[in-house]
């Protein structure tokens, strides 16, 4: 009989703890899924990358959108990636697969610079 008196509160506590763990795990999974699919946008406007400095997680995608009046490129300084000619109203995506700091520039407009930092 004593057991029957203590069991309901214990069971309730256990259920609540399990539910909390489940929700927490679920939240972590959701956050992980969001990280995997995170999309960062860099707008090109008036001869500038906006934002010029961007920090992302490995696996994230960066999209450059050319909203300027003239063609541009987003070209990594170390030559590892290059959008090629990005005409007005066009966009280009790059998946940040490895950690590091990637300075880049427009090959045509040499005063246009940006940096993508991919966290480890």
């Amino acid at each position: 009989m004593p057991r029957s008196r203590t069991e309901p509160p214990f069971r309730a506590f256990a259920c609540a703890a399990l539910a909390l763990l489940a929700c927490s795990a679920c939240g972590c999974a959701q956050r992980a899924a969001q990280r995997r699919s995170a999309l960062h946008v860099v707008v090109i406007r008036q001869i500038a990358f906006q934002p010029a400095e961007l920090s992302v997680a490995p696996g994230d995608t960066v999209e450059w959108q050319n909203q300027d009046l003239v063609p541009h490129t987003a070209s990594a300084t170390d030559g590892t990636w290059d959008s090629g000619d990005l005409l007005p109203d066009k966009q280009w995506r790059w998946v940040a697969t490895r950690a590091g700091t990637f300075p880049y520039a427009c090959r045509y407009h040499t005063n246009m610079h940006g940096t993508v930092r991919v966290g480890g």
């Binding site: 008036q46 300027d68 009046l69 040499t110």
Partner: peptide, 19 residues
């Protein structure tokens, strides 16, 4: 807006021409 947006391109051209 178009005229305002095009101005930085002309500035960039001017800088590039001088360089």
């Amino acid at each position: 807006d178009l005229l305002t947006s095009v101005r930085p391109a002309f500035e960039a051209h001017l800088t590039h021409a001088r360089e």
